[in-house]
Nucleic acid binder design. Structure first.
Lengths: 221, 221
DNA sequence: TTGACATAGTGTATTTTCAACACTAACGTT
DNA sequence: AACGTTAGTGTTGAAAATACACTATGTCAA
């Protein structure tokens, strides 16, 4: 392989992260407003180039930490996007990730006008192929709800079963039967009651639960 | 970003393809013997660098075509491997794919001593992180058997239900009940009897089936 | 204090799906 | 014609998923 050929095939490798959280029972995605061209002014996913001495996972975590300061969240490789013209500046292959953060660990993005949580159902026009990435991440998330405990990564430390059900319903886009839902989730054996109660209005307080092994995602069935 | 920083983050992007077929009821993987260092003499997956003006999928298909001549096979992105030291020559990020080819379209690799099909159960020591790629591809293939018709991509144009069952059993590593298997597969509605029969020994001939939509992989249930 | 309201919490009956299981059919061979 | 070998076929019981409605416990206001 000549040096010239070698130049030919070098590319930039980036990562973009679809960062989900729940806010007011809505699934939200963290977006960053681009300052420069291309797509100046448009919203985009947090992302950037992978360092020469950095793994892909580490790069994705760095993207999150640099924009939000959060660490230790659930992160999973999603898909690698390699369209030839996906970045008008040149060939950039992007390894997309998705991440989940519990709503109580969700970083504040106030005072940062160029970083904001957007409802996943009503996204603005996005830069690059980021809309495709988000769509794929949503599909992956929804399908993982069916066979893993991944939804718990979106919950705060303590939560009620009704809140958990609302998360499932919102992501799946369908309503679930309350009794069947509770039977199934409690049957998994990865939740425990805290003994505390959550008072939220003029009605019966709800029991608070927590994960037995926070951070652990289990496959079920 | 300075030019120097830009150099820092350029990487080579390659693809490696885990190419499966069935031979004598065994799952096999196409391997290529490396001629040069590193890992000179070891077996490796067919792979190479992604061209500057080539999508990732196209690159993966090119790897297959250049080694085997086959085209139009089932191909799916598997995972992107980005370990820092996975290639001792320098930073190479590899987008791994896996591919399936029907046994009757399986290319001949005779007269090519450096290309060979190896049984997936008894692989030699492999170059780079290719053993990880194959292991992941096998897991993915096995799990897709459960919820898609992907196994049909490994079958020749016409096949018997017993042959199909043998493929399932081999990949899943467990025996299946004949009646339940036939009930399920025939119930999918993607097979049709050809009317022909397959004579193979001193016993009752088996009906031959074909896919209604060859090449199409459907999700089930 | 009591009645209205709102959400939490609970069990059973039915349907559907999955799993286990054994014999007859058709061909070749001796 | 009897034997060996694989093809082909239904039923039954168990388990899992689904559908479904009422009581419990708090707040608030009259």
């Amino acid at each position: 392989m000549t040096q010239q050929e070698r130049e030919q095939i070098l590319a930039e490798v980036g990562t973009d992260v679809v960062f989900f959280t729940m806010r007011q029972e809505r699934l939200c995605v963290l977006l960053v407003r681009r300052e420069r061209e291309p797509y100046g002014g448009r919203w985009s996913l947090p992302g950037g180039m992978v360092g020469r001495h950095e793994t892909l996972d580490a790069a994705a975590r760095r993207m999150l930490a640099s924009k939000t300061g959060v660490e230790g969240v659930y992160l999973e490789q999603l898909f690698t996007f390699g369209g030839i013209s996906r970045d008008p500046r040149g060939r950039v292959v992007s390894v997309a990730y998705y991440a989940l953060v519990a709503s109580d660990r969700m970083p504040s993005v106030r005072n940062m006008p160029n970083i904001a949580w957007h409802e996943a159902d009503t996204l603005p026009e996005l830069a690059f192929d980021h809309a495709d990435m988000i769509a794929m991440a949503r599909r992956r998330l929804a399908s993982k709800l069916e066979y893993s405990t991944i939804a718990l990564q979106l919950m705060p430390e303590k939560f009620t079963l009704s809140e958990l059900q609302a998360v499932y319903e919102h992501i799946l886009g369908e309503t679930l039967d309350k009794r069947n839902f509770r039977k199934r989730l409690q049957g998994l054996g990865c939740l425990e009651a805290t003994g505390e109660h959550h008072r939220a209005g003029k009605h019966r307080p709800a029991k608070l639960y927590r994960m037995k092994s926070p951070g652990r995602v289990e496959f079920i069935k």
